[in-house]
Design a protein around this nucleic acid. Sequence first.
DNA 1: TATAAAATCTATCAACTTAGTATACTTTTG
DNA 2: CAAAAGTATACTAAGTTGATAGATTTTATA
Lengths: 152, 152
Amino acid sequence: MISKRTKYAIKALVALAKNKDKKSMTIMEIAQQENIPKKFLEAILLDMRKQGILSSKIGIGGGYYMLKQPSEIVLTQLMRTIDGPIAMLPCVSLNFYERCEDCTDEVTCGIRDAFAQVRDASLKVMSETTLEDIVKREERLKVSKSKGKKQG
Amino acid sequence: MISKRTKYAIKALVALAKNKDKKSMTIMEIAQQENIPKKFLEAILLDMRKQGILSSKIGIGGGYYMLKQPSEIVLTQLMRTIDGPIAMLPCVSLNFYERCEDCTDEVTCGIRDAFAQVRDASLKVMSETTLEDIVKREERLKVSKSKGKKQG
DNA sequence: TATAAAATCTATCAACTTAGTATACTTTTG
DNA sequence: CAAAAGTATACTAAGTTGATAGATTTTATA
């Protein structure tokens, strides 16, 4: 399970990515639109800002806006910077490797080998998914939903 | 990340699966061999027993032994019964579905769609991996390691 | 039948993480 | 100057995880 923090982060970024016409969105706007506790969102957006994904403007008329292109923001980056490792075992993590204390021989560990395969599979998908993809998916899903309505 | 509980469970099962000659292993034996805190392992093995994977015999000469065949024990089953959902979002979980409270329309949610793909990818691997596979991997890895030594 | 070996049961705990709240502050613009 | 906005710091409540402790029950065997 990803944390709510990560989920909220993605939601907020999707909201901002969709919001191309307007220059920026206030924390309040995003919070209400996406059903995210405002104070919690505050901290999350600040994080995204420190990572160079977002920027903000203080004061009246201010708010948050995208700094990076949605097509440049990859799911793996978000997940790693917020939740940390993606792998299911510390010893197979590419970015947060740690030895398993109980392990006597990592090289011949079948469990490690199996979970390395799992990591590869999920990483393949996640590393190919950008914010842009998610927005596009959303658009597609909305179209096919409305088509479904007309048909049913 | 899977919990240590799950990791220990898999390790213990691998140890028991490898232990074909002897009838059973005591908690103490498994704990020492696999570097697992004995009391913790106790609870884990009891769990596996309740699930019908292991059985045990009390008293002198007693211990734990496999009830199911290693080829019948699938990674997904272990993970689900110990850690719960495999999916990274409650709303894409096949076995532990829950609505995201903040979500307004699940059907058109791009995040959900993306993580459903992730789930499919990792589930494919995990559902094809049995305890037998892990044991075989271990054997293969040991062979290729010793070969490597001779060559190097 | 006493004893030791083994599993079982029940309870508890400390540390950590997560999700969220509170309060006070600073910067900007009208 | 006042209101709107983001920034900073600290705190907390609840839940989870990893682990320990102590007492009990069952069984083999000397």
